[in-house]
């Protein structure tokens, strides 16, 4: 299976759906996402300064558009730290957290969903009770509680955000695995004598991959929003590390004097979540009309 799962799903799904050309907004979204990925990967190369470097002679200098100089194209903050450099590193941190958390969520949720589908009975009831439990609390509150109890660290933050939306993957994985096991290919492969690893890894997972990827695309912006919200509150990424949300939180103090400190990261957050949402909606409509 050399092709990517998405391509394969689209090309082999029996009722061949016409793949309409991506609308302009989606193309914009993809381009923006590519740009963000490139920035995150190349942060060390393209950032003009270290994100902690102070330039006390140029404190609160405005961006070029507001009459600033090319020394600091997006201006500086109260300590003279270069906003562009901080922005670049913030993008890296925020994307890293969002990717890590989304993948953890998908892995945990899918595994639990498979466990529920495979063992049924008590295991299934336990998973479903957990699903109920996570659906019954606003995730932000839960996250805040955990942070209060455990204190803060980057690893914990990623794992914690990873738990966001796990129940969605669990539901999907369980439902699709049950459907495949009832009469479908999974039951057939089981009848061939395949081990559960083979059934779920080789057959069920590739078959539901497109649905899972769509869900991940829909959950990804939510994770970015959660992380930036927590960081904005000062409870997420801790200084000296910086993320998009913590930049906004910091810039808030200078709302009147230096709004650019806040506006640049805020617009990056909005554009990124918007892009991924657009892509996710488009993928969902094209690939998987069963998902809402």
């Amino acid at each position: 299976m050399p092709e990517a799962p998405l391509v394969l799903a689209a090309s082999t799904a029996p009722p061949k759906r016409r793949r309409a050309a991506a609308p302009a907004l989606v193309i914009f979204g993809m381009a923006w996402l590519m740009l963000m990925l490139a920035v995150a990967v190349l942060a060390d190369v393209i950032a003009p300064y270290a994100y902690t470097a102070l330039d006390l002679r140029n404190r609160l200098s405005p961006p070029i558009l507001f009459g600033g100089t090319w020394i600091h194209p997006l201006g500086t903050d109260e300590l003279g730290r270069d906003v562009l450099s901080r922005l670049i590193y913030s993008i890296r941190t925020s994307l890293l957290i969002a990717f890590g958390a989304t993948i953890i969520g998908a892995a945990v949720g899918t595994s639990l969903g498979f466990l529920a589908a495979h063992f049924r009975g008590l295991v299934e009831q336990a998973v479903l009770a957990l699903v109920d439990f996570s659906a019954s609390l606003p995730f932000l509150i839960l996250a805040l509680a955990v942070l209060a109890f455990f204190g803060n660290s980057l690893g914990l933050l990623v794992c914690l955000l990873g738990l966001h939306a796990w129940e969605r993957y669990a539901r999907i994985a369980r439902g699709l695995a049950l459907a495949a096991g009832a009469q479908g290919y999974a039951a057939a492969v089981r009848g061939l004598g395949a081990s559960p690893w083979r059934i779920y890894g080789r057959h069920v997972l590739p078959n539901i991959a497109s649905t899972l990827i769509v869900s991940m695309t829909l959950a990804f912006p939510e994770v970015i929003l959660l992380e930036s919200g927590l960081s904005f509150l000062g409870l997420g990424v801790q200084p000296p590390e910086t993320s998009l949300g913590s930049m906004v939180g910091y810039g808030r103090e200078y709302l009147t004097r230096a709004p650019w400190i806040l506006l640049t990261p805020a617009s990056v957050i909005v554009l990124t979540t918007l892009s991924v949402s657009l892509i996710g909606d488009w993928l969902r409509d094209g690939l998987d009309p069963t998902l809402r």
Partner: peptide, 14 residues
């Protein structure tokens, strides 16, 4: 071994 009523469902379409 088993042979099923619905051969399409019994095969992995991928």
């Amino acid at each position: 071994q088993m042979v099923f009523q619905d051969p399409l469902g019994a095969l992995d379409r991928r």
